[in-house]
C-alpha cells in the first residue's frame, strides 16, 4: 500500500475528494450552461461567513455553512426569477455581503483558533469523520437527484421558456438545482477551500465543453476531468506540501488549457 494511505486523515481526504469530484461537475454543468457559474463562488463566500459564525458561536462549521448556503441559494433564485434583481447583480450582493460578514465575525472572534488558510485554500488534514459522513451521505442524495432529474435539468438548461411550455415545473427545478449547488459548495470547502470551491464545479465542465460533444458526453468527460484533478491534486499536495485547493485547481486549469489547444488545432 502507498505510504500516503497509512494516515487516516489521508484516507478521509481521498474518500471525500472522490465523492466531491464526481458530484461537483454533475451540478456544475447545469450552472455553466445557464450562465450561472458565478453562483458557486457566491455560495462559497456565504459559506465562509457560516464557518466564521460557527467558530464564534461554537457550532459545527460544515453544518452552519450548509444551512446559510442553502438559505442564500433560495433567496438568490427567488430574486432572479422574480426579475427584481438581475441574476449576476443579485449574486454580487451576496458574494460581497458574505465576505463582509465573514470578516466582521472573524475580527469579533479574535483569539479563537480558526485555521484561516485551511478554510480559504483547502487543507486535506482537516477533513473530520463527521465531514466525511456528511459528504458521503449528501453526495448520494445529490447523485440520485441528478440521476432522476437529468432530463428535466437539461431541458431548463437549454431554454427555461421552452421547458415551461413543455410542462415542466421550472421554478421547483431551479430551486432544487441551487440547493444542490449549495450542498456541494459547503461539502467541498474542506478539500478545495472556500476561495476555490467554484473552480471544481466550473473548470472541469468548461474543459469538457472544449471537445464539442453531446451534452451527455460533456457531462461524463467533466466528471473524468474532475476526478483526475482531485486525485492527482491530493497526491501532489501531500508529497509537496502544497495547499490542496490550489493544486487541484491548477491541475484542472492545465487540463482546460490543453483541451482548448486541442480544440483550436482541430478547427
Amino acid at each position: 500500500m502507498l505510504d500516503i494511505f497509512q494516515y487516516d486523515f489521508m484516507v478521509r481526504a481521498f474518500m471525500a475528494g472522490f465523492a466531491i469530484a464526481i458530484i461537483a461537475p454533475m451540478v456544475g454543468i447545469f450552472l455553466v450552461t445557464r450562465r450561472y457559474a458565478f453562483m458557486a463562488d457566491t455560495l462559497a463566500h456565504v459559506s465562509f461567513a457560516g464557518v466564521a459564525a460557527a467558530f464564534l458561536l461554537g457550532f459545527e462549521p460544515i453544518i452552519t455553512a450548509l444551512l446559510l448556503s442553502i438559505g442564500t441559494s433560495l433567496t438568490v433564485e427567488k430574486l432572479r426569477s422574480s426579475g427584481k434583481v438581475l441574476g449576476e447583480a443579485g449574486l454580487a450582493i451576496f458574494l460581497s455581503g458574505g465576505l463582509a460578514l465573514a470578516s466582521v465575525l472573524i475580527s469579533a472572534s479574535r483569539g479563537l483558533n480558526l485555521n484561516l488558510s485551511g478554510v480559504l485554500f483547502g487543507s486535506i488534514a482537516t477533513v473530520t469523520t463527521l465531514d466525511l459522513q456528511l459528504i458521503l451521505g449528501l453526495g448520494v442524495v445529490v447523485l440520485f437527484t441528478i440521476f432522476f432529474l437529468y432530463r428535466q435539468l437539461f431541458a431548463i438548461s437549454l431554454d427555461e421558456e421552452l421547458a415551461t411550455v413543455s410542462g415542466l415545473p421550472v421554478t421547483r427545478l431551479n430551486r432544487i438545482l441551487v440547493i444542490l449547488a449549495a450542498i456541494i459548495v459547503s461539502l467541498s470547502m474542506r478539500i478545495v477551500g472556500i476561495l476555490l470551491v467554484g473552480a471544481l464545479m466550473v473548470i472541469p465542465v468548461i474543459a469538457a465543453m472544449q471537445y464539442k460533444k453531446s451534452f451527455f458526453a460533456t457531462f461524463i468527460i467533466s466528471i473524468i476531468i474532475s476526478l483526475f484533478s482531485v486525485i492527482s491534486g491530493l497526491f501532489v499536495s501531500y508529497y509537496l506540501g502544497w495547499a490542496s485547493g490550489g493544486t487541484i485547481t491548477l491541475i484542472a486549469i492545465t487540463i482546460f488549457v490543453t483541451s482548448s489547444l486541442i480544440n483550436l488545432r482541430r478547427n
Binding site: R151, F154, L162, A163, G167, K212, S214, F215
Partner: peptide, 19 residues
C-alpha cells in the same frame, strides 16, 4: 440566441418530450 448548452440535435429534439 447563442445557445451555450453543448447539445446535439437528437438531445434537443428528445427534450421536447420531457413531460
Amino acid at each position: 440566441s447563442n445557445i451555450q448548452c453543448p447539445a446535439t440535435v437528437e438531445e434537443i429534439v428528445a427534450s421536447g418530450r420531457i413531460a
